[in-house]
C-alpha cells in the first residue's frame, strides 16, 4: 500500500506532459533510471546523502527537459502522434544504453543506515524509506496542486492544457509553457527515480516495468489529472497487494499489465474521466 506514494511520484510527470503537450512521454522510464543513477553516483562519488540528491536532480533535469523540448520535441508536435511517440522512444533508447556504456549493466543499490531503518507503528514494522517515499508522493501532489492553482505560471499551464488556442488568445506564451511543462515533467521523473533508488536496486533497464505501471496509473487516472494520478496509483497498488495473494510473486508484474490492458479497453477515459462523464450524464 505504501508503494502507492512511489507509483504516484513516478507518474505525475507523465500526466503533466500529456496534459499540456498531448504527447506520451515514452522516455519516462529513461529519466526514472537516470534519476536513480545520479542519486547513486552522487552518493558513491561525493558522499551526498541520497535524500539531498533531488536538490541537484530537480533543477538539472528541469533544464535538460526544457532543452529537449526546445531542440527535438517541438519539431514533432504538429505531426502524427506516432511520430512523437517514436521520437521519445529513441530518447529512451539513448538514455538507457548510454547508461549501459557509462555505468555497465551491473546491478546498483544505495546502502546507508537510512535505507535499512524501520519504525514500528501500531505493532507493524515499517521501513522508514517506504514511509518517506509515501510522504513525498503526497507532498508532491499537494505541491503540484498548489503550484497549478495558485501561481500565474501554474494557471497558464492549466489553461494551455485545457485549450491551447484559447490560452494563446488571452496572452499565454504557449511555446514557453510547453518547454516549462516538459521540463517539470522530466524533473518529476528524475525525482521519482531518485526516490526509487532508495527502495530498489537498479540496472540501466530499470524503469521499463515501472514505467508500464506509470502508463497504467495515468490511464487509470485519466491521463491529464494530477489528482487522478494519485488515485490511479492507489488503485494499482491495491490491485497488486490483492493480486499477490492469488498468484506467485514472480507474476506480480503481470498484474499491472493486465490492469493496463483491461483499463485501456474498458475505460478509455480512465476512472476519473468515466466518473466525470457519469456525473454529467
Amino acid at each position: 500500500m505504501l508503494v502507492a506514494g512511489l507509483y504516484a511520484a513516478m507518474s505525475y510527470g507523465l500526466a503533466l506532459i500529456y496534459g499540456v503537450l498531448k504527447i506520451i512521454n515514452l522516455a519516462n522510464a529513461g529519466f526514472l533510471m537516470l534519476g536513480a543513477y545520479v542519486t547513486w553516483w552522487l552518493f558513491t562519488a561525493f558522499h551526498v546523502h541520497p535524500l539531498l540528491a533531488p536538490l541537484a536532480i530537480v533543477p538539472l533535469f528541469f533544464l535538460f527537459g526544457s532543452a529537449l523540448e526546445r531542440t527535438l520535441v517541438r519539431r514533432v508536435l504538429g505531426a502524427e502522434p506516432i511520430i512523437s511517440l517514436l521520437l521519445l522512444f529513441g530518447v529512451w533508447l539513448v538514455l538507457q544504453n548510454l547508461a549501459y556504456v557509462i555505468w555497465t549493466g551491473d546491478t546498483r543499490s544505495i546502502d546507508t543506515p537510512f535505507i535499512d531503518a524501520t519504525v514500528s507503528v501500531a505493532g507493524m514494522q515499517l521501513a522508514v524509506p517506504r514511509l518517506y517515499v509515501f510522504a513525498m508522493g503526497v507532498l508532491v501532489l499537494v505541491g503540484l496542486q498548489l503550484f497549478l492553482t495558485r501561481t500565474y505560471l501554474g494557471r497558464a499551464i492549466r489553461a494551455t492544457a485545457q485549450d491551447r488556442d484559447a490560452a494563446r488568445l488571452v496572452g499565454v506564451d504557449v511555446e514557453r509553457v510547453n518547454g516549462i511543462a516538459f521540463g517539470i515533467g522530466i524533473a518529476l521523473a528524475g525525482f521519482g527515480g531518485s526516490l526509487l533508488s532508495l527502495l530498489f536496486s537498479f540496472t540501466p533497464d530499470f524503469g521499463r516495468t515501472l514505467s508500464l505501471k506509470s502508463f497504467c496509473i495515468v490511464v487509470l487516472g485519466g491521463l491529464d489529472s494530477i489528482v487522478g494520478v494519485a488515485f490511479g496509483a492507489l488503485s494499482l497498488s491495491l490491485a497488486e497487494a490483492f493480486g499477490v495473494r492469488y498468484m506467485p510473486a514472480s507474476l506480480q508484474n503481470l498484474i499491472s499489465f493486465v490492469v493496463l490492458v483491461v483499463v485501456l479497453i474498458v475505460l478509455p477515459k480512465g476512472i476519473v474521466g468515466t466518473l466525470r462523464a457519469l456525473r454529467r450524464g
Partner: peptide
C-alpha cells in the same frame, strides 16, 4: 549496447 545507443540516435 553501443548498437542500441546508435539505433536510438538514428531513430531520433
Amino acid at each position: 549496447n553501443a548498437d542500441l545507443l546508435a539505433f536510438g540516435l538514428l531513430l531520433i
